[in-house]
Amino acid sequence: MSRRYLIKKVIGAFLTLSAVVVFNFFLFRIVDRDPLAKYRGRSKLTIEQRETMIRRMGLEGSKWDQFTVYIKSVLRLDFGRSFDSTQPVLGEITARLPATLFLVGVSTLLTICVGLYIGTKAGWRRGSRFDRTSTSATMVLYSTPEFFFGMLLLAFIAGRTGWFPTGGLRDVGADYGFVGNLIDRMHHLVLPTVTLTLGYLGSYALIMRTSMIETLGEDYLVTARAKGLRDSEVMSRHAVPNALLPSVSLIAISFGFVIGGAITTETVFSYPGLGLATANAISNNDLPMLQALFLLASAAVILFNFIADLVYGLLDPRVRRTE
């Protein structure tokens, strides 16, 4: 990959991240004039406690002073203490991060694989029965809020059959040994993963289908056919590698939606990750938590977009090999 492309993308990602950090300050310190007003326990605070809190939240002095304090604490990953648990936000987040990473990671992988497969096949055989069926199905999937999926799965699979637990990360208070505990956790992960995967499968499949259809008219497919290649070879060697290119960027952008989906999915299944933490922070008006979660979600999407740019660079020689 050309160095210039790489540097450009690194700088781009860094600038976006900085913009998010500044935006965060703007939103929580300037649009919201009195962040402490959202603290429920404020009426019980003594004057000293109140001042300590103001100091700890970096709300002293001019806006400019506050900004420098804010930037310094962001760089130290110090996001203050949660209004709710009064524990440091960073600790609260790192404790919940693995659960969410696992859920989002597995679902994203599944969504990309299955979504791209369906979209490829539907687009290649446009108008076929597979295309009509899968496109109708993906349209319905696309139109369904993922948390409603979760509720349906809970009601009709977990509730009726008892095959899967109705929520949580693991069976509370049980110890099945190392392997047993692992299986137990997987067991708890099945329904949330299915929910999140189904929730975003639709848009990925539609993106890839559109991309495939746009590729169908390309001249190099005629060349490939003229060379005597099988239909399946024309598709896998010529149509798919080209159709993937526009999909990569779009898929990266839709990753932001998957993050949103994790919030509601975790809520439905009381799966104790960052999504559930977000829902709790909303109901408790827990500003320090929300700020940090917002920064983290944005950083995750920016990172994902950056990776997508790298993948794009690897897939497209026109980007990879320009001096």
Partner: peptide, 15 residues
């Protein structure tokens, strides 16, 4: 376009 839009909507709505 890049900032994840549900988290953004959430913080905006909270504030």
């Amino acid at each position: 376009l890049v900032v994840p839009f549900l988290p953004l909507a959430i913080v905006l709505a909270v504030v």
